[in-house]
Design a protein around this nucleic acid. Structure first.
Length: 194
DNA sequence: CGAACGATGTTCT
DNA sequence: GAACATCGTTCGG
């Protein structure tokens, strides 16, 4: 069973990123469903376009998913203990991915709370590594298709207002670019914007 | 509150 | 050998 993607991901990553806001990410694992509405993302380009991106230089064992077909999950390990998740998106012949930084939990909050070890709904998915843990993702989910019955995106109400700002925790010449996109009215962001 | 810091190991130089 | 798209805790004002 396949589920159509609600957004055309085969386009420049900076155009796609704000359109992911409002979409719901659904993951069914072990017969249990968790889901959340995307409220905060960051766009990461490829090659010379973005020197903050994992794909800035060339293809490696870690970033190869960013060079693959759009519509897959790109998951990487960082800081010795955390995973972060992205949606692969780029125009033909490019590389790129959209980092998922925060979700508003919509389903399976009890399971998320157990995975995370906290109960406050506002803290379950407020951060890229937090939402990975809450959704039950791991290293082996890198490269998975996002149009499957057990892992897919659902169209949702677009944000009333979108706020942009510099991406969190990056250095480089492109660090100041406003490629972080947030639902301005969400109470589930990883941190204040602007 | 906010700033500082340690955890912990993979990836890249 | 340094850097790291982070998080939770601790410390200071």
């Amino acid at each position: 069973m396949t589920v159509p993607l609600p957004v055309d991901l085969a386009r420049p990553v900076h155009e796609v990123a704000p359109e992911l806001l409002g979409c719901e990410l659904v993951h069914v694992k072990g017969g249990r469903r968790t889901a959340g509405r995307i409220v905060e993302v960051e766009a990461y380009g490829g090659q010379a376009r973005d020197d903050c991106s994992h794909a800035h230089r060339y293809k490696t064992a870690r970033n190869r998913t960013m060079y693959g077909p759009p519509g897959r999950l790109y998951i990487y390990f960082t800081y010795g203990m955390h995973y972060c998740s992205n949606v692969v998106a780029h125009a033909a012949g490019e590389a790129g991915a959209i980092l998922l930084r925060a979700l508003e939990p919509t389903a399976g909050l009890d399971l998320m709370a157990r995975r995370r070890g906290v109960a406050d709904p506002r803290l379950l998915c407020a951060g890229p590594a937090r939402l990975v843990k809450a959704m039950g993702f791991g290293r082996t989910d890198d490269g998975r298709r996002l149009d499957a019955g057990h892992l897919h995106l659902v169209a949702g109400p677009a944000p009333r207002r979108i706020v942009t700002g510099p991406r969190v925790g990056v250095k480089g010449h492109d660090a100041g670019r406003p490629w972080r996109f947030c639902d301005a009215d969400s109470g589930y962001l990883s941190r204040p914007v602007g």
